[in-house]
Design a protein around this nucleic acid. Sequence first.
DNA 1: TCAATATAGATGTAATTGCATCTATGTCCC
DNA 2: GGGACATAGATGCAATTACATCTATATTGA
Lengths: 153, 153
Amino acid sequence: MSRRSFTTRKPALLSEVVELAWVRLMRSQRRIFESIERDLQAEGCPPLAWYDVMLELDRAEDGRLRPMEIERRTLFAQPNLSRMIARLEREGLVRREAFSDDGRGHWVVITEQGRRKRAAMWEIYGAAIEKHLGARLTDGEAEHLADLLAKLV
Amino acid sequence: MSRRSFTTRKPALLSEVVELAWVRLMRSQRRIFESIERDLQAEGCPPLAWYDVMLELDRAEDGRLRPMEIERRTLFAQPNLSRMIARLEREGLVRREAFSDDGRGHWVVITEQGRRKRAAMWEIYGAAIEKHLGARLTDGEAEHLADLLAKLV
DNA sequence: TCAATATAGATGTAATTGCATCTATGTCCC
DNA sequence: GGGACATAGATGCAATTACATCTATATTGA
């Protein structure tokens, strides 16, 4: 592929390597994410976003959190999360319960079925992470990568 | 935050560090991506996806590519790209031209206005990359990060 | 040459997202 | 106590996405 020169005037401060790191961060995340989503879907699993929510609930005391707390932990936008919880509830993976301390809120509680589903998803999910990420890095590289990415969050 | 122990049975092969690298890859990409999108939007710019397409066209010979070639380079799904091109065309940033070699296809050509818009977006975009990524890494770290991410694509 | 199949790209549709707004309850302060 | 403002969460709606399919043109092979 003949790479022509082309004029991209860069903002004074931005270095080539930073731009390259960004492009690769985008590409690798997107590509691996999509691969993993496909792997999950191929096994009849729900999308990864559901996993994130169920994991937070599974870890939480009594398997329950308030929507705003899930939001804080997962960074999903509030209206989207609200509807996602509705979908999870429709599938019987969580249920809502009254929250007496604050009449505006309620608990979201993971069900037994939800816990089982999460565990089942992890089988696929973990294997997919290994396949798409683990297999391409040594443990040392993975650790180093994790350290570098930690600086970004 | 008291981190309780919880039983997550891992698929035999997946190491802790790989999982951590994956979680951070997701989080950092998503958070920075959203920040950059907000920065662009705050300046009245179209979404980043438009930039990707216009950049490919801007770089291409005669500022033109076939949809399937854009698809190959950007990895957008075909129906989504098809509609994105329609939107770009509606905004006067690209136009379609006949492609005589193959009656099924056509050229997508970037307009002068499209080139200007792309350049204008880059001012914001580049600064945003610097702000959200560059400012948090030394050049050495950025280079190292880029190298590690290269192994994933 | 022509039927069978493959490919480029568009389109219908249902699901999902983003954004603004709405409702209901809580908090603050006079 | 009660008005003004803040917060939790839901909902309406327009835009976007994913997925399946459709149309038109190419290619292939008998």
